[in-house]
């Protein structure tokens, strides 16, 4: 399994990380090094083995479905790079 520049472009797009055109082939090379290392997992016999979902043998605790927090608009917006009139502001999404 080898990753080419086109696949690297697709992954960068999925991850929403801008990668310049001339950096794609170097990135693909790094991916291939790491994936080559990961590839050895294919040699392990995992027949009949369940994928781990929880490392501790506990069931998640249940709680009442009630509101326990809220009414903190100012604190929620305090760290926003751009907040206006009680909202997070972003560039125009729909033309």
């Amino acid at each position: 399994m080898s990753i080419d520049a086109e696949t690297a472009r697709k992954v960068a797009k999925l991850a929403r990380i801008r990668v310049e055109e001339d950096e794609l082939s170097a990135l693909a090379g790094e991916f291939n090094t790491i994936l080559g290392f990961i590839e050895q997992l294919q040699t392990v016999d995992v027949e009949g083995v369940e994928p781990m979902t929880s490392v501790t043998p506990q069931r998640l605790k249940r709680r009442a479905d009630t509101v326990t927090d809220g009414d903190r608009q100012a604190a929620v917006l305090a760290n926003a790079p751009d907040a206006r009139e009680g909202f997070f502001a972003v560039p125009k999404v729909v033309e």
Partner: peptide, 9 residues
Amino acid sequence: NRARRVRTL
């Protein structure tokens, strides 16, 4: 999924 199986092992 394979990595999670190996984790179980």
